[in-house]
């Protein structure tokens, strides 16, 4: 069962309370999202580490309930 936009935003917010999040359901199917996430938690981290932090926040849903998440991550 795909992930609703609210569920996705909630999971990201829980992991990164200070984050500015721009989330788009790019195909309107709750399964292909693009997300721009800006949080202090990413400061000093490599891109791979930043993206892994997001995947961790999604608690195993990435690649399962959630098929595609185009990520743009940046520190504050």
């Amino acid at each position: 069962m795909p992930l609703t936009k609210n569920e996705l935003e909630k999971m990201i917010k829980e992991a990164f309370p200070d984050a500015i999040i721009v989330l788009e359901d790019s195909q309107g199917d709750n399964n292909h999202y693009s997300a721009r996430i800006c949080t202090e938690a990413f400061n000093g981290k490599t891109k791979i580490e930043q993206h892994k932090m997001v995947y961790k926040a999604l608690k195993g849903k990435m690649g399962n309930e959630l098929h595609a998440l185009q990520l743009e991550t940046m520190g504050k």
């Binding site: 891109k47 995947y55 990520l71």
Partner: peptide, 29 residues
Amino acid sequence: IKVYSDWPTIPQLYLKGEFVGGCDIVKEM
């Protein structure tokens, strides 16, 4: 491969044995 790199999606690019990233990171780079 997802376990090997601790990365949940495909594609995955490796250069001289080093994981470089998936689509977003490779595109951004």
